[in-house]
Amino acid sequence: MAMLTIKDLNVYYGVIQAIKGISFEVNEGEVIALIGANGAGKTTILHTITGLITPKAGSIDFEGNDLVKIPAHKIVSLGMAHVPEGRRIFAELTVLENLKMGAYTRSDKKEMENTLEMIYKRFPRLKERKNQIAGTLSGGEQQMLAMGRALMSHPRIILMDEPSMGLSPLFVSEIFDIIREISESGTTVLLVEQNAKKALSIADRAYVLETGNIVLSGDAKELMNDDSVKKAYLGE
């Protein structure tokens, strides 16, 4: 059985239907990419999964829990972390305080220290700047902080929303390397990206979204060679 199963999801903003009966699944260990243009509904799907938006209909099953019925603040302790679009770090808190907020629901102090060391190893820049106010970090560093903060909860699945947005090409490559590392260390990844080329290059499978519908899905490598995908999303 899949780790995360989304079934017939319908989401409305007022009278406007943003998600039109979407179903998809994520298996343990996979990297799944949701790609599509601005406004296709990618971010809405992630927000609905982690409870920030309540869907009108449909179910979201995560390892036997129906997330639709669980309040947003109780989802992280089930093993699901969400790196939101625009990073949404706490700009007035220090880097270390941000990371500690990521582990808010954890009570295993000793293991938390280990996780922190692991994150410092993966993001040495965060260690250098741990006492700095997070709002003073560069965009790329803020993205690293947002990812580190999510990893502090020691999630089994991590949802990432546009991690490459607004970053220099150098940082974009670095961020995607890190996503690959996170996946290799055993964490399942659900990735939302406008940078379809990069996303497909690290994903196992992908779903292509258009105005609230899934129009294509399949193996990431195959999608990369699909003519319509090439034309619409890869600029070839």
């Binding site: 920030l52 603040h73 992280v76 939101p84 706490f90 700009a91 808190l93 808010y104 909860s153």
Partner: peptide, 23 residues
């Protein structure tokens, strides 16, 4: 920890919820 959570909530309620903070 509760004080930091308070500051986090005052900055960004949605992000705070994603951390597991009961707003």
């Amino acid at each position: 920890k509760a004080g930091s959570a308070m500051r986090a909530v005052s900055e960004d309620k949605a992000a705070a919820q994603l951390m597991g903070i009961n707003v």
